[in-house]
Simulated scan of single mutants.
Amino acid sequence: MDIGIGLPGHAPWSDGRVLVEWARRAEARGFGTLSVSDRLVWSTPEPLVTLAAAAGATSRIRLLTSVLLGPLRANHALFAKEVATLDQLAGPGRLRLGLAPGLRPDDFAAGGSDYTTRGKDLDRLLERLAAAGDDQVGPRPATPGGPPLLFGGHSEAALRRVTTYGAGWIAGDATVPGVREFTPRLAEAWTRAGRTGSPRVVASVMYALGPDAEAAVSRAIAPYYAFAGEDYARYGVSLAHTTPEAVRTAVEEFAAIGCDELIFMGNDPDPGQVDLLADAVGL
């Protein structure tokens, strides 16, 4: 199982150069993937811009949006050009796009998009991405066929997107029982669609390490999930991994259920968190 690390974009960072330092350290310590999350109504950095900076600061580590809110990218031709440009900057085989319709109505209100049609809007975006090589808009991607797509969600629509357009599925705030419950449905849908091989299964979990770990998690996660109520915010905090032992247990348990990749999302902006995680997982 590959081990990745996620930038602490939802945490209270204040200097974007810190995120670039995370990227450099993540590659130096041997992580397989660097991911970045997406929100509009939050201090989260824009994913494609952030990964472009990371691409310029690194040369090998894979880059992933985890997950990008597709329906907010209303100009589909421009988005396809942005993706192809980022793929060129990163080099072939480094970029993957994790996509989802989105959950928060305030993101759509702020972006002037219709929350109720977000699933259909995402499908139209995917159609445009699939046709990106048939026109002269933007550069050709460096990766043959364009960057692989991963999709979040548990709905039938999510399964349809994975089997029609995707290379696999990505689970945010993942738990072992949740992944174990969904993957048989994923495998069945993949086979039913006539796809060969197996869909890639990527799980993403929260972490912070060190003497301030629990406080850092509370500062980052509790406000981020406050929209869903105090109980859910506490639940989100409780899922985070805050000791090396908890991190190693997560690696063992997600590997045991057949995950292809596990990504630890940072909650403390200190770049030293990269080294603490690398030490915990044995990189």
Rank of each mutant, 00 (worst) to 15 (best):
P101W: 05
P101C: 10
G102K: 08
L103Y: 09
D107V: 09
A109Y: 11
D114Q: 05
T116L: 14
T117V: 13
T117F: 04
D123H: 09
R124P: 05
R124M: 10
L125S: 08
E127R: 15
L129W: 03
Q136L: 14
Q136P: 10
V137D: 09
G138K: 08
G138Q: 06
P141T: 02
T143H: 08
T143A: 06
T143R: 07
G145F: 09
F151Q: 03
F151A: 02
F151G: 00
F151P: 00
G153K: 00
S155F: 08
E156H: 15
E156S: 14
A157F: 04
V162S: 00
T163P: 12
T163C: 15
T164N: 12
G166K: 02
G168K: 08
W169R: 10
T175C: 08
G178V: 05
V179P: 01
T183E: 07
T183K: 07
T183M: 12
E188D: 14
A189F: 07
R192M: 10
G194I: 06
S198P: 00
S198L: 11
P199K: 12
V201E: 01
V201A: 05
V202M: 08
A203E: 02
A203Y: 12
S204G: 12
S204L: 14
V205I: 11
M206C: 12
Y207V: 07
A208K: 01
G210A: 11
P211W: 15
E214D: 15
E214V: 08
A215G: 13
A222H: 15
A222G: 12
Y224S: 10
A226L: 11
A226G: 14
G229L: 02
G229H: 06
